[in-house]
């Protein structure tokens, strides 16, 4: 279903935006593949046919042909093979699927892949530079900030954003601004310690 394209598939995205502009309308129906490249609003393409979408994940562009209903989370996991982001509830109630979209933490299970086209998605797989772990990853290890590890990718993505948002100035702040990520093993105090540990290094840049 998926294949990786590193450079040029952005043109598909641009083309659609261009067509929309050229038609004098800002309505952009993303076309079903079988309906051909030029959308015709009157023809009402079968919405159950797969659509093309290009996602930029951890700096790489990926062209996918997927069901329009696919969320960013399912696109990552089932179509791109990046399974670090986890499904814990599929309804925005647990935070396990947290990724960064344009550098803001977001719930990938409630974000349509189509709506994320043209935006930068960062997942837990995109944090380490080779063998060098991101300071938050390192802090999670040192503070034993997980047990089963299932919520951990979401916690780490959320924690990085928490620091960058300026919400890591006190333990109370960290607790509140890390409350969108449920940890059933309840590693919470260690998560707070990890955020505290990593914050200065992250803010230093």
């Amino acid at each position: 279903m998926s294949d990786k394209t590193n450079s040029t598939t952005r043109s598909g995205f641009d083309r659609r935006m261009f067509l929309a502009g050229a038609a004098g309308s800002a309505v952009v129906p993303l076309t079903a593949r079988a309906a051909g490249p030029a959308p015709n609003a009157a023809a009402a393409p079968d919405p159950s046919l797969p659509v093309d979408v290009t996602l930029r994940v951890n700096g790489d562009s990926r062209l996918l042909t997927i069901d329009a209903r696919t969320t960013v989370l399912d696109a990552l996991r089932e179509h791109i093979g990046l399974t670090g982001s986890k499904k814990g509830c599929d309804h925005g109630q647990c935070g396990a699927c947290t990724v960064l979209i344009d550098d803001r933490r977001a719930i990938s299970c409630l974000t349509l892949a189509l709506a994320a086209e043209g935006r930068d998605i960062t997942t837990v797989e995109g944090l380490a530079k080779g063998d060098k772990l991101h300071p938050m990853q390192q802090a999670f290890i040192e503070q034993d900030a997980f047990q089963c590890g299932y919520c951990t990718p979401g916690q780490i993505m959320s924690a990085i954003a928490c620091v960058k948002e300026g919400h890591a100035n006190s333990e109370a702040d960290i607790r509140e601004y890390m409350s969108g990520n449920i940890c059933r093993c309840a590693a919470y105090p260690n998560i707070v310690a990890a955020v505290k540990q990593a914050a200065p290094e992250i803010l230093k840049g």
């Binding site: 309505v27 129906p29 993303l30 209903r69």
Partner: peptide, 19 residues
Amino acid sequence: MRSFTYQRVTDPSAAIQAL
């Protein structure tokens, strides 16, 4: 979730038109 057609609009009048 039922199948749907996804449209992205870039100005308010297009949004109103689509809706």
